[in-house]
Amino acid sequence: MQTAKKPSVKTVQRQGGFLIDLYLPAIIGGLRITLRHFFRNVITQSDVVTISYPEQKRRISPRWRGRHRLTVREDGFIKCVACYMCETVCPAKCIHIEAGEMPDKSVEKYPVVFDIDELRCVFCGLCVEACPKDAIRMDTGIYSMASTERVTFDYTRNMLMDAHAKTDKTKFPSTPLPLTQEEALPQSTAKLAG
């Protein structure tokens, strides 16, 4: 508990008086400002702050928390080890993970299912903080995920791995992504052997 400091007080000045009672000086003063804005905006549009949205986009901060993405390792595998930290910390309970066994024994687990319901998500960023593997990030800069169908907001693992994906068909077909456990096994064994 810090000690209280003596406050310095300032009494605000209430306006009034004969000049104000005349109405006109203030009306003319107000008109001067609005006219300045009017002519500046009609002639040069220099003060206009509107962003014509779909054509122009505002600059967003590099820290902007946008749509999630799942990062990949150098060898193309998903970094996520299905430790459930993000699912646990999520205040909106929007992450759903199902773990599968990874043949790579140094990793052990990988997410067979990694769904984010972006309609539930509150974009708080706690999942990013909670990830011990830097596997989930929110740095895609995507803030508009508008759609007319509810189901399109369920982002699956493959969509999340591709920052540009709008559908489940990822733009990077070369990324080896085991969809099921059975599918995963031969690929991983091949990798281990290779």
Binding site: H37, F38, V48, T50, S52
Partner: peptide, 10 residues
């Protein structure tokens, strides 16, 4: 249009 010019809008 005019009010938006006054209010810094388009």
């Amino acid at each position: 249009k005019w009010m938006s010019a006054v209010q810094d809008r388009i």
